[in-house]
Design a protein around this nucleic acid. Sequence first.
DNA 1: TCGATCGGAACAATCGATTTATCATTTGTA
DNA 2: TACAAATGATAAATCGATTGTTCCGATCGA
Lengths: 360, 360
Amino acid sequence: MDGSGSGPVRRAAVRLSDVAREAGVSAPLASRVLNGHASARAAAETKARILEVAERLGYVPNVAARSLRASRTGLIGLVVHDLSSPIYLELMRGARAEAAAHQYFLVLGDIDELLADDEAFNIFVNGRRVDGLIVQGGHQGFDQRIGDIARAVPTVVVNAPASPDETGAGSGSVTVSHVYPDEPSATRLLTEHLLDLGHTRIGLVSGPRDSMTNRLREKGIRDALEEAGLGLRPEDLVFGDWSADSGRRGLRVLAERWHDEHAGRPTALVAGNTLIGIGILGAAAEEGLRVPQDLSVAAVHDTWISEHLVPTLTTVSLPLHEVGTAAVRQLLAGSGSPRDVVLTEPRPVLHPRSSSARLQ
Amino acid sequence: MDGSGSGPVRRAAVRLSDVAREAGVSAPLASRVLNGHASARAAAETKARILEVAERLGYVPNVAARSLRASRTGLIGLVVHDLSSPIYLELMRGARAEAAAHQYFLVLGDIDELLADDEAFNIFVNGRRVDGLIVQGGHQGFDQRIGDIARAVPTVVVNAPASPDETGAGSGSVTVSHVYPDEPSATRLLTEHLLDLGHTRIGLVSGPRDSMTNRLREKGIRDALEEAGLGLRPEDLVFGDWSADSGRRGLRVLAERWHDEHAGRPTALVAGNTLIGIGILGAAAEEGLRVPQDLSVAAVHDTWISEHLVPTLTTVSLPLHEVGTAAVRQLLAGSGSPRDVVLTEPRPVLHPRSSSARLQ
DNA sequence: TCGATCGGAACAATCGATTTATCATTTGTA
DNA sequence: TACAAATGATAAATCGATTGTTCCGATCGA
């Protein structure tokens, strides 16, 4: 990458001044015209000439110079828990689309990697490398730093409401916006689906018990059950994290209880997210539980993989695409008005598949 | 993000000149010392003082200014086919680690999104937003533009050898480096595993027939079969793309042939990648084929999901982490010496799981 | 003792785009 | 007719870090 030696010849950079000279005008004027600046007072033909020359020469502005002068990088950082999770794909797409509409680019990051590398964290957050940050909430250890992060760069937390963990350490505390979907409605929809299929005892395998996300999801289930005159039994609940491994362990724990107690068992489980659902399906097979004959399973979040599992997984989809777009909009709207945005539209949608069936 | 109004107060930026003034030296000297520049002739105590002040004030260099002067952004673009594919995770991690070791950051991109947005493509490639590009090869339509891309920014293609599609359109053609793992050894390993289990008729569901990646993978299978005195029958081959849907369709096509021909069928299939493997498992279940009793399946690439499928999927892992690190190294080594790097170390590793079993 | 050398550090130029202030030239109006 | 206002465009300053050059004083060899 030294550009020296007998290597290939790269096209020399075309500068704004090159365009200006070729068009017979000054650089500032060219700048105004090319940026469609309101105060670009120039004769129509001059404008046309500048645009034509820029096009012909293949002029592309030097981002570094522009950033320096405008103290604006044109980049938004999007930091999620785990880049490999199919769950965030729609969020990323939504955010990318909205960002692109405002001439912004997205830089993707992974919370664990960011926390593991202090240097990277510092540069990312304090180095003015991004104009704003969209952060997936609900990560202990990261939520605690949200205050510090937000003090350095405008920040929006997605997929989680404000949590007690988010301390605005010290004075000059900065509050951040939160953008998240209507979680209770989603799990309510799943629960009602299972109730419709005749299930009366329904369990839950979820992420961290005290995470705001879990609380909201659990609430949706409880509400639906209560309305049906039923309840959520403590022994039918398992918590862990949001991974497939955790779902697998969750089912094992439940199965063990079922062996011990001889007190009946739930005939359907709600999975806190798709990864947990995948773990449950895998563990159920190993435990000799047939899905859906012996156990129905329904999970939060719809991803491409849901249709390719054996059996295919019943899910509810949340408007993550819109969460992404709304987060970018909120970020660009300025930090003056931190607020919570709950996306109730579009509504969560149920995707019934083979993992849930009528109770025999 | 306007920073105006009654919004929260953000920490004012600490400039190099602030550090210099506080330390009682000039900015250039502070710059040299902080960057550990060889020609930084400064008294030991002066150095210490500068470092201490920088630390105390929380100085972080302004990337825009640095980029402008040094014409170096500190960013490397990594562009893969599909960000949601678990296959690229290790590649990303490897590239990130190596990049970080050289003070570089990674900007992730998605080929389809990049191709869909001309503006984004242009800025990404021609806007000097990144110092180098690592591109996942084997994408028709993108391979054709590699020549143009490489002419604008140093580029390394990963996971695919040079293909005929890569035309260096026009004069001043630029050749790029290719970094990829030992594909034939991987599929050979899978095939030998299946042979060991007693299978004598083995099929293949792969990606695009003429893609270099498929050719290499197919070759590994053919070699292993030939050594065992067997061959790959044309009717046991299906091609498509690298998606789960394609794997699903692939199995359907094969199953149809088996119905028609009454001429026997393969008892084991090699899947061109994990996504195809997932599709095969799903479709097999729907076709009433039990895996592994009726059909063994083994796939290229080992991902977290392999262990969570039903049944768990036998795979072979390629050193994608090392492909990532090697790609970054090749990029940073300079464009003077484009070359093909075939990573034969570490060797592909077989991960036998439940989807493959001894022929009954 | 004089010039050469070297350590220690500052000065000035530079990267490329944007923004503010400024200067001409018209056009419109009292 | 003369002066204000609008139009069209430029000169100069700026963003913050880096790099090449220069400067000063002290030490050293001849």
